[in-house]
Design a protein around this nucleic acid. Structure first.
Length: 269
DNA sequence: TTCCAGGCGTATC
DNA sequence: GATACGCATGGA
């Protein structure tokens, strides 16, 4: 990790990282673009403002300690992983080569398990701006992202302020199952992928898609492959016979390049 | 007004 | 196991 302390800030030199492509690509919903090349957000209720400078290979982590960089943000931004190597592997496939080139600064954030799970429960049959709105109201209400324990007394009715619609009762069920110990997210993290899928899907409102998103974005299971409406379009258009061999084991990484490519590039669907 | 959005529960066959 | 339909909300 190539960084130096600059007053109250940390300056970090980092390749394969674009703030727009990573923080605003539908994997995390709490980052707000506050100025050009600047985002404010939080992880585990530790707030951060991050901006990039020069040609955007130098990042300024505002009001951050060296300790937080090493213990929190390096892990969250997955800085120990070589995304150039991911892109080299995936670029054996022609379409993936284009997707990687289109948005080469995507990284998969190592998010909190509960936050990812609950965020993607909220995401179902919903659009990204509205998902952000619901999560913003949730965090505003609690002064940060609430834990399952924080939410233990919530009911479908008490959550009406979220305007989450039919998804509120799913959150209540997730909170109940985690609160009772019926589901232990730390234990899920240690399960093989199929058992983890099956366990998460015992929660009401968690089906195949939400489980895959939780596993990819909350548990860093790179083999998880969420298929939403956009990725279904990708599969129909380019991969009617399934994903190419070069994605094996990192299907989720490939998925994020493809998702962003088809959703934002304006390419013919 | 109708359609759609990082889907899923339920009913029915 | 597959298919059809309803579901809350709000922007296009």
């Amino acid at each position: 990790m190539d960084y130096k302390v600059d007053g109250n800030d940390i300056l970090l030199r980092q390749k394969d990282l674009s703030l727009d492509e990573t923080l605003d690509c539908g994997q995390a919903f709490r980052w707000e673009k506050t100025a050009e090349n600047t985002y404010s957000g939080a992880f585990l209720n530790r707030k951060l403002t991050i901006s990039c400078e020069n040609d955007c290979d130098i990042f300024r982590l505002h009001d951050t300690s060296e300790e937080d960089l090493i213990n929190v943000w390096a892990d969250y931004f997955d800085l120990d992983t070589d995304y150039s190597e991911y892109k080299r592997r995936l670029s054996e496939d022609e379409t993936l080569a284009k997707a990687c080139k289109y948005a080469g600064g995507i990284r998969i954030l190592r998010q909190d398990k509960w936050e990812a799970l609950s965020s993607f429960i909220i995401s179902q049959n919903n659009n990204i701006p509205r998902i952000k709105g619901i999560i913003s109201r949730l965090c505003e209400h609690y002064g940060g992202y609430p834990s399952p324990d924080d939410m233990k007394d919530e009911t479908e009715e008490s959550l009406a302020f979220l305007r989450a619609g039919f998804r509120a009762k799913y959150l209540v069920d997730a909170v109940a199952k985690i609160g009772s110990g019926e589901i232990d997210l730390e234990a899920v993290a240690k399960m093989d992928i199929d058992e983890a899928r099956k366990t998460l899907q015992t929660i009401k409102g968690v089906g195949p898609k939400v489980a895959e998103c939780a596993l990819l974005f909350g548990f860093y299971r790179t083999e998880a492959f969420p298929k939403d409406v956009w990725v279904k379009r990708v599969m129909a258009k380019w991969y009617p016979d399934g994903l190419p061999e070069c994605t094996k084991g990192i299907e989720g990484i490939a998925q994020q390049y493809l998702f962003h490519y088809i959703r934002t590039s304006g390419i013919e669907v």
